[in-house]
Design a protein around this nucleic acid. Structure first.
Lengths: 333, 333
DNA sequence: ACAAACAACGTTAGCGTTAACGTAGCTGCT
DNA sequence: AGCAGCTACGTTAACGCTAACGTTGTTTGT
């Protein structure tokens, strides 16, 4: 369906009896137009329902104020938090954001990157480091700032603001190991989907000097996955004395599953979450977890891009750290 | 910062020794190019890292494949569900989506609409009916499909796919009233923020033939708001016999608060949620709630826009309904 | 054998906007 | 008076791409 012809800048120019350039200047607030004429043009533009055409503007300026952001999912307050900080920062800088969810699929991400690039974005934010080689190559060649967030690796495409999840797992594991737990388990998701979680698992193993017993429910919802994982754990042979969960929502589901089986937390089994989401503040028992600097991460990622856009130098790496939140779902020394 | 000069279609044309038009045809898969030449051009485009420029394409075609979607928040699985259905449908139709969150602020929405319109979108999706008059006027004039979702009203700007929240409240209230409850309360959010919730409240009052005792915690997180609301309720004078919550997450928080005060649910007090989110499947006691057709709503909203774009006639209104989920947080007859 | 039909291209012009440059008229100074 | 320096505009060309139309060479039908 062909779009209806919109009011153009020349229509206003004709109506006002001036040149298109004067209208352009007037509407953009650029000097070189008398105040009387500017007021007249602005009111005329409003009356004629004029809407500037960014596609044309982008064409002449060879530049847009768009930043694309790829996240794995929106069904996770973690990314909503990151996004919130990021968008607020970009908005204050007059930059519009375009969001995409990849559902943890690098192919979806790759297709999105191609689509996005064709809109000439000013910057790109990607979650994690699991990209197709083609994406890395493409973005390495394009001269626009790229930030990889949430995860942390030594070799970002361009910039990186994230967490060392292996170190986080190690820190959290060390804390719990220090409390005397010796038979750890892990409830996660489908193998290989969430690489960050897998790396935390590596860190946990390191802290316990042994591999963890791993349960991988396939439910897509975190609460349900947690409950299913908890049940798998109950029905497994050897019962662990503590279970680390991919995130707090899974931990909550696991907690409910354990209670359903008549187990006492933390006396019979310890439960540990990850992220420190608000739900932990309303649980019947305070969840032991690790608070992650999500909003801050979003803000810093946005600032990194803004620095690049303004030609200010910015460190290639930013490695933030989480904070262990001692709770009552593990027995304390 | 001026963007680096990208490979243009004419660069490829020069390299291949053909005209720009032939390259354009070859890359878009339009007939009129021999297979041999097309293959050569495609491989050349890849080698030269060519990225088509949508801003230029949109300019000539006076058309984009973008649909803008405004949602109040992403910190709510309801909208994540709606969005999921909508994006999947649009994606299958080859349409890209641009998301914005308004944080329930009509002013933010209005600013976004202006920004979006300047990108010449093919369609617009708005949540609810709380728009600035200027937005209604603007969108009524623009000849692009607009769908208002989630809520339902007789006078949409263009199209409407939603729920009659007053009727939903009445239905849910009638069910609970029928169970013998007579002193209803409501835990919501800041007054006037979520208009749909307010209209459900109206429906509830209707079903009970009396106004509800209303508690409005100010916490932004739903879990925390629920717990705070529950506490407010405990500390209030007259104790209700049943409390309706704005959504399931608030209901969970309220449930925890009630338990914290030593109350038994449902014997001492009934608790009712809204939406039927997955968390209800892992709660220690099955939550009485109303299941809302969120994903379906997203799919239908997207289809409505697609119909318009394809010139197919589509009904102006679509009114979906929720389903009462009888749970164990109210005593059953 | 010759026109008609067709496939495979090329040419032109235009989409709406803005950077860069040009120009007219006025002001103030010597 | 004459000129520099300013303000307030206008003109031109270009951004990258594609619709519409034009052109060439080849095939097909009779």
């Amino acid at each position: 369906m062909k779009r209806q012809r919109q009011t153009r800048i020349t229509d206003i120019a004709a109506a006002a009896g001036v040149s298109a350039m004067t209208v352009s200047r007037a509407l953009r607030g650029i000097e070189g137009v008398s105040e009387a004429k500017r007021a007249e043009i602005v009111s005329l533009a409003k009356r004629l329902n004029y809407v500037p055409d960014m596609t044309a503007r982008a064409l002449t300026l060879a530049n847009t104020n768009l930043v694309g952001i790829a996240l794995p999912t929106l069904f996770n307050d973690v990314f909503a938090d990151v996004l919130s900080g990021m968008r607020a920062t970009f908005r204050n800088a007059g930059i519009a954001t375009v969001i995409e969810t990849t559902d943890y699929d690098p192919v979806v991400e790759a297709e999105w990157v191609e689509r996005l690039l064709s809109w000439r974005p000013a910057g790109i934010v990607l979650t994690g480091f699991d990209h197709l080689p083609a994406v890395r190559e493409r973005l390495a060649k394009v001269q626009i700032p790229v930030v990889e967030i949430w995860d942390w690796r030594p070799d970002p495409i361009d910039l990186c603001v994230g967490m060392d999840h292996e170190a986080a797992g190690r820190a959290l594991g060390a804390y719990v190991h220090g409390l005397g737990y010796r038979r750890p388990a892990f409830i996660g998701a489908i193998k290989g989907r969430d690489t960050r979680a897998e790396r935390r698992l590596v860190g946990l193993s390191g802290a316990f000097h042994q591999p963890l017993q791993v349960f991988r429910p396939h439910q897509s919802n975190a609460f349900e996955a947690g409950m299913a994982g908890g049940r798998m754990m109950m029905e497994a042979g050897e019962r662990p004395d503590v279970v680390f969960c991919l995130n707090d929502h899974i931990a909550f589901g696991a907690l409910m599953a354990c209670r359903g089986f008549g187990l006492n937390v933390p006396d019979d089994i310890g439960i540990v979450g990850f992220n420190g989401l608000p739900i932990t503040n309303v649980l019947p028992v305070e969840l032991t977890t690790m608070l992650t600097p999500r909003r801050e991460m979003g803000v810093m990622a946005a600032r990194a891009i803004l620095s690049r856009l303004n030609g200010v130098s910015t460190p290639r790496h930013r490695c933030l750290i989480g904070t262990v939140v001692p709770g009552a779902t593990v027995r304390r020394q």
